[in-house]
Design a protein around this nucleic acid. Structure first.
Length: 454
RNA sequence: GCGCCAUUGGUGAAGUGGUUAACACGCUAGUUUGUGGCACUAGUAUGCAAGAGUUCGAUUCUCUUAUGACGCCCCA
């Protein structure tokens, strides 16, 4: 049997419906903030992601899917969304667009060649947004609040926003030196990994799990104490706007982000959900004023945010957030003989075109089993097509919820369903009640929330 | 890249170096029921991730590979 590739997932059934719902909320919310959807290629020239480290000594080895195509080009499957957006921004000269800043959002699969673990796959789907061409602290605050609002609209309750500021380049470089000077004499007290980090990526020592509780870590210099006046003022402004937007946050000096093109605002949003494994960060972002220029575009201040949808969906599931997922059909058509089946074929199409969700029998089940199937599909109405009734231009329609049956004229089906489904609130989505009519003591359906069951 | 544990039917799973691999749910058919929720009957893996080895004989032992879970590294 051919198995799926490591760290990839098949998403189907109810889970796929949740994904679609989550994505619909993302789309709708982004639109309200007037962020425009952008689609960039899934693969890009490797150089885009593995660009020169340049003047910085911070080295981040990117674990990406790289390959050489038939034309000898070095290709990389995108590990994140920002670089492609920035490339597109430059290549399409969006900086020349009179409509500034450029606000875009994306949603797509990313690929990382890593060992899978909790909350981390090789193929992942991320959505994110970027504001290119604004250095206004308001855009920092807006990006953060937009992200928070998406989580809130979806129904996540316990989310925590951690923010920090790395300051401008001057502040950041200064802080780096201070941090190295601080840790250097104490290297023997730190773990093996930290000894490597001091050279590769000193800021990330602050993230170390092993040494986190040591005094040396707690007393480490904090980024915000090394901001110059300008950066400090800027950070205050961001916080001020966040207050106006009613976003609660916590300043966490250990949020540093791994890449060196970040400056000023950096933030992470975490879900406080039990059972989320070692990594409970839903998404993060920050300001990257140097990146456009680094990729040969004009000096452009930008800020962005990205979030893994897989983790988000997992958080919603763990928090048992009720989502308005449509997983029922309006009508299930049953039949026994071939003539009835033919009529079912005709009728199902008519009703679907009229806007109803209609399903019927395809595998030759008996009537009894067809009723079971109707239950599984959570059919709101059923019709057993019967040659005799059809000859009289009639049909017996049954309300699966109440058990009531009515004989109605064939011509009246559409009107009848419309009346029942759209004008009464009888079939409105119910968040907490069981869909079935069964005795709750015996009911085993997965949505039943009755006390007896628990 | 490193470490630890796992992989038995549609699902949850029990189990053993030796002729027929529990049990439950589900599903299908039938009896009964005024056409479904109950009850009863019957059916439902030539197969225990894949390959190789040890053995008279392996699903059970060993190795390799693949995938899953979790942790480290890394985290965009």
């Amino acid at each position: 049997m051919i198995q799926k590739q490591k760290g990839c997932n098949d998403i189907y059934g109810r889970e796929a419906k949740i994904w679609k719902y989550v994505e619909s909320i993302i789309d709708a919310t982004m639109e309200k903030y007037n962020y425009n959807y952008i689609r960039t290629p899934l693969f890009e020239a490797s150089e885009l992601f593995h660009r020169g480290i340049g003047e910085s000594t911070d080295i981040v080895t990117k674990e990406t899917y790289d390959f050489v195509d038939r034309g000898g080009r070095e290709i990389t499957l995108r590990p994140e969304g920002t670089a492609g957006v920035v490339r597109s921004y430059i290549e399409n000269k969006m900086y020349g667009d009179p409509n500034q800043p450029v606000k875009v959002y994306y949603n797509g699969t990313m690929y990382r060649y890593e060992r899978p673990q909790s909350g981390r796959d090789r193929e992942l789907t991320q959505f994110g947004m970027e504001v290119l061409g604004s250095d206004d602290p308001l855009s920092d605050a807006e990006v953060i609040s937009l992200a928070v609002n998406i989580y809130k609209i979806l129904g996540l309750k316990d989310i925590k926003v951690n923010i920090n500021s790395l300051g401008d380049k001057e502040s950041r470089d200064n802080y780096r030196k201070v941090l190295i000077d601080y840790f250097k004499p104490h290297m023997k007290d730190l773990c093996e990994d930290c000894n490597e980090r001091i050279d590769k990526n000193p800021l990330r020592i602050l993230d170390c799990k092993v040494d986190a509780d040591k005094d040396i870590m707690k007393n480490a210099p904090k980024t915000i104490d090394y901001l110059n006046e300008e950066s400090k003022e800027r950070f205050e402004k961001v916080k001020e706007y966040l207050d106006i937007l009613k976003v609660s946050y916590e300043v966490n000096p250990n949020i540093v982000r791994g890449l060196d093109y970040y400056n000023h605002t950096v933030f992470e949003i975490e879900a406080k959900v039990d059972g989320f494994g070692s990594n409970n960060v839903l998404g993060g972002g920050g300001r990257y004023n140097g990146l456009v220029n680094e990729l040969d575009g004009p000096e452009t201040p930008c800020i962005g945010f990205a979030c893994g949808i897989g983790r988000l969906v997992k958080a919603l599931e763990l928090e048992e957030v009720k989502l308005p997922i449509i997983d029922s059909v309006d009508l299930f058509l049953m039949y026994v003989n071939e003539d009835e089946k033919k009529y079912a074929t005709y009728l199902s199409q008519e009703l679907r075109m009229a806007g109803f969700i209609v399903d019927t029998e395809y595998v030759g089940r008996g009537l009894k089993a067809q009723f079971k199937q109707a239950d599984r599909l959570k059919a709101k109405f059923t019709i057993v097509l019967n040659s005799e009734d059809l000859n009289n231009n009639e049909v017996k329609i049954k309300n699966q919820k109440t058990g009531e049956e009515e004989i109605i004229s064939l011509d009246a089906i559409i009107y009848y369903l419309d009346e029942k489904l759209n004008t009464s609130d009888e079939f409105d989505y119910e968040y907490d009640e069981c869909d079935c009519d069964y005795d709750h003591k015996d009911c085993n359906c997965e949505h039943c929330s009755c006390e007896e069951k628990k």
